[in-house]
Amino acid sequence: MGRNTIFFFQELWKNLTRNPLMTAAAASTTMVSLLTFGLSLAIITNINNIFVEITSQVEIRAFLKEKTDNYRIKQLQDEIMKLSHVRRVEYVSPSRALDKLQEDLNLSLDMPPEENPLPHTIVVRVGDPRHIDDVADRISGMDDVAELQYGAKILQGLLALSLAVKSVGYLLTLLMAIGAMFTIMNTIRLTVISRQAEIRTMKLVGATSWFIRWPFLLEGMALGVIGAVIAAGLASAGYYMMSTKAQSSLPFIIPIVDASSMSKLIVFTLLFAGVVMGLAGSFISLGRYLLEKED
C-alpha cells in the first residue's frame, strides 16, 4: 500500500458510496450468509458443550482395600492427583457413603460403624474423558486399590456419538462458511465485471496489478466487515434471547453456553471470517480480469 494508502481508502469510500443501493445489497447478502454461518457455529458450539459436560460427569470410583489407613488414603489421593488429566480427587469415607446411601434410598439403617459394609472410596474426575481409560489403568495398578468402577461402555458410546455429531456439525458449518465465501466472491465479481473497461484503462496508463487490486481488496474487506458486524449483532441478540428463554422454560437444566461468551465467539469468528473471505473473495474474482487483454 505504502504512500498510496490514503488514495486507496479514498477510492474505497467513493466506490462504496457511489452506488449505495448496490453496496447495501452486497453487504446484506454477505450479512445473511455470515448470519447462517454464525448460527450454525452457535449450535455446534452448544452441542459440543453438552457432550463435554456430560462426559466430564463420568467419574472413576476407586474402592480401596478394607484395612487401608488414613495416612495411606491421603497418600493415594496425592498420587492420583499427580497423574496427568486428573482434574479432581475426592475421598468418600464409608460412613459418608452410608449416609448418602440412606439419604438416596430414603431409609434409615441403624448400623454400628464396624458393620458398615461400604469400602473407602476415592472419586476421580478426569479433565478430558478421552483419557479416562489411561487414568483408570494407572489407578488400578496402585497398591491398596481393590477395585475400580466407571462407565467405560457408556462413555465410549457417548464419545463416539459426540464425534459423529461434531463432524457433521463442523462439516455443515464449513459449508456455510464456503457458501458465505462464494456469496462475497460473486458480489465482488459483479463490481469487477461492471468495471472491466476501467481496469483495462488503469493498466494502460501504467498502474500495476497491485495498484488496481488494493481498492477492490479493501472493498471486499469492507463488505465482509459490514456484513459481519450486522450478522454478529443479530446472532448475539438472537442467541441471548433464545438462551434465556430456554433456561427458564425447560424443566431440566441443559448446559447452554452463556450468552456473553457465545457473543464473543460469534463476534470474533464472524469478523475474522468476514475479513478473510472479503479479501480472498475479491482477490480470486479479480485475478482473471487483471490479466485479461482485449484480444
Binding site: K203, L204, V205, G206, A207, T208, S209
Partner: peptide, 12 residues
C-alpha cells in the same frame, strides 16, 4: 512490471 513502468513514461 516493466510494461507498467514504461507506460508511466508514455502518454497516450
Amino acid at each position: 512490471r516493466q510494461i507498467a513502468h514504461l507506460r508511466r513514461k508514455v502518454g497516450v
